[in-house]
Design a protein around this nucleic acid. Sequence first.
DNA 1: TCGCATAGGGATAAATTTATCCCTATTGTA
DNA 2: TACAATAGGGATAAATTTATCCCTATGCGA
Lengths: 133, 133
Amino acid sequence: MYERKIPLTLNCGLDLIGEVLYGKWKIRLLWFINEGHKRPSELQRKIPDASRRVLTIQLKELEEHELISKVIYPVVPPKVEYSITDFGKTLIPVISALGNWGDKNEARLRSVILKEPKRLPGQIQASHNLTKV
Amino acid sequence: MYERKIPLTLNCGLDLIGEVLYGKWKIRLLWFINEGHKRPSELQRKIPDASRRVLTIQLKELEEHELISKVIYPVVPPKVEYSITDFGKTLIPVISALGNWGDKNEARLRSVILKEPKRLPGQIQASHNLTKV
DNA sequence: TCGCATAGGGATAAATTTATCCCTATTGTA
DNA sequence: TACAATAGGGATAAATTTATCCCTATGCGA
């Protein structure tokens, strides 16, 4: 595993939730598992942009953080099912809030995200006026 | 600036909100600015774990994403004030939800986050039983 | 005169996260 | 017989994000 070199910052609730949700696909994994997509292969198909490897890793972290639990069926080919834990369920409303805000503001967000490289030429402040950027 | 090599994924609300909030200190910056801490130096003091450089960069991104706005006072030494925009304000309840969840579950989170390196010895599945991990 | 405070940005190193590729094992199917 | 499907993990490269260090400018106080 990777040996952290800069110590964690765990000062407040935001740090703590960040520690378990920060990861490119974690929120989506939690969401889909909550919707009943249990097997890793299903989740992989649901999130084709993610590499198989990262999903495996992030699933394991979610599990270590007790947001999901895992059942291994001793069959061949292997079968594994994840479920959301009671603890994990309490996160669902929070995730909804995030997703809803994103959906509600889709147009504007898409616009500000994609226009980024823009630099206004006259953005430097004038000598005796405040400049609102 | 950095030239992205892997294209953005902007499929759903979660992707969109992630694009503007994902960044080690962005949520906190937004939070403190909303609380009325306007100047970069104040914010820096509020978030001493962050390097000055990153704060500058993340402030600029928040501004480009129209979540905060900036006023430059043409004085020496320089003076700058950020304020949260109306758009940014709509994010505050979402951020509250995140922080509250983290606060409410502080003890448990702290525990699962810090015990991570643990590996159960008997975690491999038995031959005829399901293994719940 | 020296150094501080202030805001910002360039250059570069380091840290961290993701992506890629490959290997294990077994049964069923083409 | 060769290959797909399944879950996982090692090794390593690449991408991305942060950290560090340094430089600009100016009025004020020691």
